[in-house]
Amino acid sequence: MEKVKILVVDDESRMRKLVRDFLVRQNYEVLEAADGEEALDLFYREKDIALIILDVMMPKLNGWDVCREVRETSKVPIIMLTAKGDESDELNGFELGVDEYISKPFSPKILVARVGAILRRSGKTEETEENMELGGIVVNKTAHLVTVDGERIDLSFKEFELLSYFMENAGIALSREKILNHVWNYDYFGDARTIDTHVKKLRSKMGKKGEYIKTIWGMGYKFEVENA
């Protein structure tokens, strides 16, 4: 089976090497570009790129321009690397069709986990039945079980789906609309306040670990574990 091909675009060579090394360990094939123009050249030349990791601030063409052009012809998943805490970048990207955001500085392990989740969602890799673990929380999707610091907690179906989605998107700001689309499905037309109600209950059941679910005022939520 051919390796899944990922394009990493960043003008900092050290950043590209860091990302490449972690991806290669997971058996991905990695292509690199140092600016927006080089990224587009590679994208058009290599027809089987499965995912793009794209920095915002770059010479020649910035990440937004690259994303805009790619989206004219392709729905390839794009992870955008943004300045830490710059929510305007994330809001801008929703309109351009960016799939996920990761703020710098970031944990390479989180990035690799996001890559794997997006590729599974897009059908590029096979699903695994491994546990998902972060910050002392373990989610077993196969058995539909959750433990916090070794103790099982009982969650409703939607609470379980919500926690799973948060952990799969750790470190990423998620709008209420996006949460509704993924957890309640695209055909859900209910009030977005239902998310706030479920988050409140979920935080309560998680105890102190509920603090990992951060509120992004005016937008939605972010699951964030310090030193993950």
Rank of each mutant, 00 (worst) to 15 (best):
E2K: 13
E2P: 15
L7D: 01
V8Y: 06
D10M: 07
R14F: 14
R16V: 05
V19A: 13
R20K: 15
R20I: 04
D21K: 15
D21I: 11
F22K: 15
L23C: 15
L23A: 09
E29C: 01
V30D: 08
L31Q: 02
E32H: 11
E37P: 06
E38R: 01
L40C: 12
D41P: 01
D41S: 15
D41E: 15
F43P: 13
Y44K: 12
K47F: 02
I49M: 09
I53D: 00
L54T: 12
M57G: 01
M58W: 09
P59N: 09
L61N: 05
C67A: 12
C67T: 14
R68K: 15
V70Y: 01
V70N: 08
E72R: 14
M80W: 09
L81V: 09
T82H: 02
A83G: 14
K84P: 02
K84Y: 04
G85D: 02
D86I: 04
E87H: 05
E90H: 10
E90G: 06
L91P: 05
L91D: 01
S103E: 01
P105Y: 10
I110V: 14
I110W: 01
V112P: 04
R114Q: 02
G116R: 14
L119C: 08
R120W: 04
R120T: 14
S122H: 09
G123C: 06
T125W: 06
E126F: 05
T128C: 04
E129L: 15
E133I: 11
E133G: 00
V139K: 04
N140S: 08
K141R: 15
G150P: 11
I153W: 00
L155Q: 03
L155H: 06
F157C: 07
Y165M: 07
Y165L: 10
E168I: 04
N169L: 11
G171L: 04
A173L: 11
A173C: 03
L174R: 05
E177M: 02
H182R: 15
F189C: 09
D191P: 03
A192I: 02
R193M: 12
R193S: 12
I195K: 08
H198W: 09
L202N: 03
L202E: 00
M206D: 00
K208G: 02
E211T: 06
K214I: 08
I216H: 10
W217L: 01
G220Y: 05
K222L: 04
F223P: 06
E224V: 01
V225Q: 03
E226L: 15
N227L: 01
